[in-house]
Design a protein around this nucleic acid. Structure first.
Length: 569
DNA sequence: CGAGAGCCAT
């Protein structure tokens, strides 16, 4: 600043001299004018006001390389890559920043190869050039190439190291990330935050906490990263303490906290925090509303869901696909399938998640035919079904009780669609087989699995043994679950229920004792429903609801009706 | 004028 003011004074003196001697009426443009205009162009581009920035640029009597760089960078940052490339090609002079910006533009637009071509061709590089390229390779998960550049580069700074740490973390190489973090010459708050986030992502919460504690200076970003860690751990109390400690909470820290409440089944608190956020004049964005809609889904509260839908319009977020997808789920989980379908149909360009979501919605409501109809339409926009698509489709088969179809789709996903089934698919299929009494066959499938069966797979088998009272397989499945997770109360409860249903009371006692020994506590299940503006809660064994007698009578009636239908089919 | 960090949907 001091420098430019100094220059300006000298220049003004020169201009004055010229003015006196040649009687030029207009001031010639000074370096200060160019500098000031460059700053203004930069600001306008960051605000997205490209037309105005361009006008300013066009009207400049003299431009320097910074002016060109500013307008060129502005174009690609606002999504006009073509313009940006045109400007780069027509620039009268380029410096290293022009090249760096062009490389970044290519990376942003998805062409890493073009980026590397520019990188290779540029006349000289500085550290930022290498850093841009490394970050580009990392974004495309080309970690080896990033490592190669990192090792080749003549000088590394804190940004190079931090980018590389993030790269290792993104591909799950958390140890290498930590090694680099320990070996780097100087760390700043970004480096610390990247490392903390890496541990949070890897669910290594103790390490994250330890680093956070040791971190010398914390800012809102690092604290938010740690909040996310606490939330993922389910420790909402410590998350809230940290959140309250932030001096200047911003939208992202609110979003992290709201998401935490939503994902930990504390929807009311998520909604309260949204109100708090708005009252503090922070503007909810797509992240906020996606999480709030998820909270409404979990609360199964159509009233809150509709109000949130109104907020979506108020904040003009209905154009975001992620928000629309969250709306589909919300309406489905709140029981309004028509609104769910309508939310889907209002999306201009549904992505694969949108399709998966609407299929899952029909699946949850047992509408196999509709799920299949939407499945068949997926490729119409050049999209391909993925693992989750088939999970939704299989779950549709399950909820509609279609065993043959589920086996068909399970095979087709491998052979026709080239999607490898994972544990979740097996668990879903085994659940279907189990419900139809085919536990032996289900067990055969588990044995043929290419990978090790997980908790969900064995849990599905164990649950299936309940209806067919297959003690042998039930014990086997329960053992596997206890091996994987000794404190999993579900397995003990299920097994003990199966023993009880078979009259093996001695074994029931044994399982109960085992459960106590392994410190597996059964947590009380409860459900609730919203009628009008009242929420009705139901806890197992609790008869305090005002209309409990009527409810029991209705359940008995429904049960006999279902039994009657079972006999027909 | 260019490089690294926190929050979202099946």
């Amino acid at each position: 600043m001091l420098f430019s003011r100094h220059c300006r004074t000298i220049l003004e003196n020169i201009c004055t001299i010229r003015y006196l001697s040649t009687k030029v009426v207009l001031d010639p443009p000074s370096i200060g004018d160019v500098y000031r205009t460059n700053v203004r162009i930069g600001r306008l581009t960051r605000e997205g006001r490209m037309e105005l920035a361009r006008k300013l640029f066009d009207e400049m009597p003299t431009r320097d390389v910074v002016s060109w760089n500013a307008i060129m960078t502005g174009y690609w940052k606002n999504g006009f890559l073509g313009e940006s490339k045109k400007l780069f090609d027509s620039m009268p002079l380029r410096n290293v920043v022009s090249w760096n910006s062009m490389i970044a533009a290519c990376i942003e637009s998805g062409s890493i190869d073009a980026a590397f071509l520019y990188f290779s061709q540029m006349p000289e590089r500085n550290t930022a050039s290498w850093n841009v390229m490394i970050a580009g390779f990392i974004r495309y998960r080309m970690i080896e190439k990033a490592v190669k550049l990192f090792e080749e580069m003549p000088r590394r700074n804190v940004i190079s190291y931090t980018a590389m740490i993030d790269g290792y973390a993104q591909v799950g190489e958390i140890l290498k990330a930590r090694q680099l973090f320990e070996s780097m010459p100087g760390r700043n708050e970004v480096s610390w935050t990247v490392m903390i986030s890496a541990y949070v992502e890897a669910a290594k919460f103790d390490e994250a906490r330890e680093l956070f504690r040791r971190m010398p200076y914390k800012n809102v970003v690092s604290v938010t990263a740690m909040i996310t860690g606490y939330c993922k751990e389910g420790n909402m109390e410590d998350a809230r303490v940290l959140f309250e400690q932030i001096q200047r909470r911003d939208d992202v820290s609110y979003n992290a906290m709201i998401t935490g409440y939503s994902q930990n089944g504390r929807g009311e608190e998520a909604l309260r925090l949204l109100v708090d956020m708005i009252s503090r004049r922070l503007r909810p964005d797509q992240y906020t509303l996606v999480s709030i809609l998820a909270a409404c889904s979990n609360l199964a509260s159509l009233t809150q869901g509709k109000q949130t839908h109104a907020l979506v319009f108020k904040y003009r977020l209905h154009t975001h696909v992620s928000v629309a997808n969250a709306l589909i789920t919300m309406y489905s989980k709140c029981g309004s399938l028509l609104d769910s379908q309508s939310a889907f149909e209002h999306i201009c360009t549904p992505n694969i998640i949108s399709w998966n979501t609407i299929i899952a919605a029909f699946a949850q409501h047992g509408l196999y035919e509709k799920a299949l109809y939407f499945f068949n339409k997926i490729d119409s926009l050049g999209l391909e079904p993925d693992g989750i698509t088939f999970l939704s489709l299989l779950s549709a088969c399950g909820h509609a009780g279609m065993v043959k179809e589920s086996l068909y789709w399970f095979e087709s996903m491998k052979t026709i669609y080239k999607v490898e089934p994972r544990c979740e698919h097996y668990a879903c299929l085994i659940d279907i087989l189990g419900r139809s009494g085919r536990v032996e066959y289900a067990y055969k499938m588990i044995q043929e699995m290419p990978s090790e069966a997980d908790l969900g797979v064995w849990g599905a088998l164990l649950a299936g043994c309940r209806s067919s009272l297959n003690i042998e397989l039930a014990e086997l499945a329960a053992q596997e679950i206890m091996k994987l997770d000794p404190r999993n109360s579900g397995a003990y409860v299920m097994l003990s229920n199966i023993y009880a249903a078979s009259g093996l009371w001695r074994n029931v006692t044994k399982v109960r004792r085992l459960m106590k020994e392994n410190d597996a506590k059964k947590q009380t299940a409860f459900s609730w429903m919203e009628i009008g503006d009242t929420v009705h809660y139901f806890v197992g064994g609790d008869a305090s609801h005002l209309a409990i007698d009527e409810i029991h009578a209705l359940i008995i009636q429904l049960y006999s009706q279902m039994k009657a239908m079972e006999n027909i089919t």
